[in-house]
């Protein structure tokens, strides 16, 4: 196992090719839950966990079922099914096993099912032919990157609450401008690691 490659995958998917700031994916959750720090942190934890597990599950299904049976053209539908099934079962199990954790993080699970980063990661893993550990590293990096984006955004938006923003730009519009400016800063990382 090549640890340098895994480490590079995590860093590159978290910072250099951050899904939110370089590919502008997952924006609905990004703007939806970044209003308060508390929800942003909860979402980041849940998101990263779901991302790693669903990347691993999709890799197993893709390599051992879809490739031998020549079903790779169905990958979008199958990956959505896998993620949805996993999230739903996690939801149910968590409710039964640990109600306190469920009340903290359960609300985010339903939102995650239909997120576009969650489906982008297995698709990219399949496209790049990553092995099992690389897939998980990519999932972990993408999750951490999304969490980082959420937490930065929440910390700035909480500060902006008191700012004298002109009325037409209050709320979501100024957040979009803010996301654009952060993305501008993140271009500084471009070219750091070329995989």
């Amino acid at each position: 196992m090549d640890f340098t490659k895994l480490f590079e995958l995590v860093v590159s998917s978290a910072l250099i090719n951050n899904f939110v700031f370089t590919m502008f994916l997952g924006l609905c959750i990004f703007f939806g839950v970044s209003k308060k720090m508390e929800t942003a942190v909860g979402m980041s934890i849940t998101f990263t966990a779901v991302m790693v597990v669903s990347a691993a599950l999709s890799w197993v299904v893709y390599t051992f079922i879809m490739v031998p049976l020549d079903l790779t053209f169905l990958k979008i539908i199958i990956f959505i099914g896998i993620v949805a099934a996993f999230v739903q079962s996690a939801d149910t199990i968590m409710k039964k096993v640990s109600p306190s954790l469920y009340y903290k993080l359960g609300v985010y699970l339903a939102l995650i099912t239909t997120n576009c980063i969650i489906i982008a990661v297995p698709l990219k893993n399949a496209g790049e032919h990553y092995n099992f550990f690389e897939s998980m590293a990519f999932g972990l990096g993408s999750g951490l990157g999304f969490g980082l984006a959420l937490i930065i955004m929440a910390s700035i938006r909480e500060k902006l609450e008191v700012a004298d923003v002109p009325a037409p730009f209050k709320g979501l519009p100024i957040s979009f401008i803010l996301a654009g400016l952060i993305a501008l800063a993140f271009t500084g990382f471009s070219g750091l690691i070329t995989l």
Binding site: L160, A163, D164, V165, P166, I174
Partner: peptide, 8 residues
């Protein structure tokens, strides 16, 4: 200015 001017 869109963020509220100096200080914001």
């Amino acid at each position: 200015l869109l963020f509220g001017g100096l200080g914001y």
